[in-house]
Amino acid sequence: MSAATRSSGGQEPPMAAGVALARMARQVRLGRWGVWVALACGPLALAVAALPSPAAPTAAAPAPSSSTVRTPAAADPSGYAELYLAAWLRSAASDESSAQARLAQAMAPSVALPQPAGAQSVLERAVAVRSAHREGGQWSVTVAAQYADFSVRYFAVPVVADASGGSFAVTGAPGQVAGPTTAKTPESVYGVVLPAKGVLAATVAEFLRTYLTGLGQVDRYLAPGVQLAALSGTSYTDLQVEQASAIEEAAAAETVPADGTKTRVRVQIKAQDKAGAWPLAYELTLTARAGRWEVSAFATASIAGGGGRS
């Protein structure tokens, strides 16, 4: 035991006791602050605890079933084949510096240019008429070349497309082929001939005359809610109905049937303007309402969402 301790009878000196008391007071204050901080941070701590841990692994999204997998459609390179064939036919090996020759060579560097001799008919346009998709992004596009002398030749252009459909390349020289044959026309479903003086034929004729000539109010022939865009760039003065036929037997009735009855009609007309007579054909759907037929579908007609006629 030290002399200082012995002199105080085993008690700590006054200075040491003061230091101990100050330390205890500081600990008490820190403890109070800790309690207030814990109370203030309690809601925040709960909110933080509710957040997912960044280290926690996320579950992988389930793979789509085979029934929902969508394979993107292959891009059709018909337009690319049209452009190439037009440039190829308008180019010549003797003038590789021409714009058409440079374009053809840029699209197919390995394909030789033609060598025209003498006067050639001028190419008017090239139009794709058929395309066939093969494996590995390979395509064969049949392109019709129409000339100024009204002759037409057909060429098969081999084209390859990448997986995204954003890049194409001509893989070989075009080959002249036979053009597509004319398909057999199926029998028309419009088998009910409308009486020329019947109420339905009269409605169709009046509607088309008003619509094509622009004389009169076409809305009076339309069913409620139907809107029809006006024609532009036309100057028909009159028309004549050549033939009108329908699918449903109700169209040939002498009187208008019950409200809600629908019929689909195909009408062939001859429209007259200053330049001559033009054979035109239209398909319409008419609906019976209040003792008369109204046009409920026609060409670009659209059903308006409310606000239609009543």
Rank of each mutant, 00 (worst) to 15 (best):
Y80A: 08
Y80W: 09
L83N: 12
L83E: 09
Y84H: 10
A86R: 09
A86T: 00
A87C: 12
R90C: 11
R90Q: 15
R90P: 00
S91H: 07
A92T: 12
A92P: 05
D95I: 00
S97V: 11
A99I: 14
Q100M: 13
Q100V: 00
A101I: 00
A101R: 07
R102F: 04
A104T: 08
A104L: 06
A106W: 02
A106L: 05
A106H: 08
M107H: 06
M107D: 04
A108K: 04
A108W: 04
P109D: 08
S110I: 10
Q115H: 10
G118I: 09
Q120A: 10
Q120I: 03
Q120M: 10
V122I: 09
V122R: 08
L123Y: 02
L123G: 01
L123P: 01
L123S: 03
E124G: 07
R125A: 10
R125Q: 11
A126M: 02
V127L: 13
V127A: 11
V129C: 09
A132H: 13
A132M: 09
H133K: 15
H133S: 15
R134D: 01
R134L: 15
R134N: 09
E135C: 01
G136I: 04
G136F: 04
G137Y: 02
G137R: 02
Q138A: 13
Q138V: 06
W139R: 05
W139G: 08
S140C: 06
S140R: 10
S140K: 01
T142R: 13
V143N: 01
V143I: 06
A144K: 01
A144H: 03
A144L: 03
A145K: 03
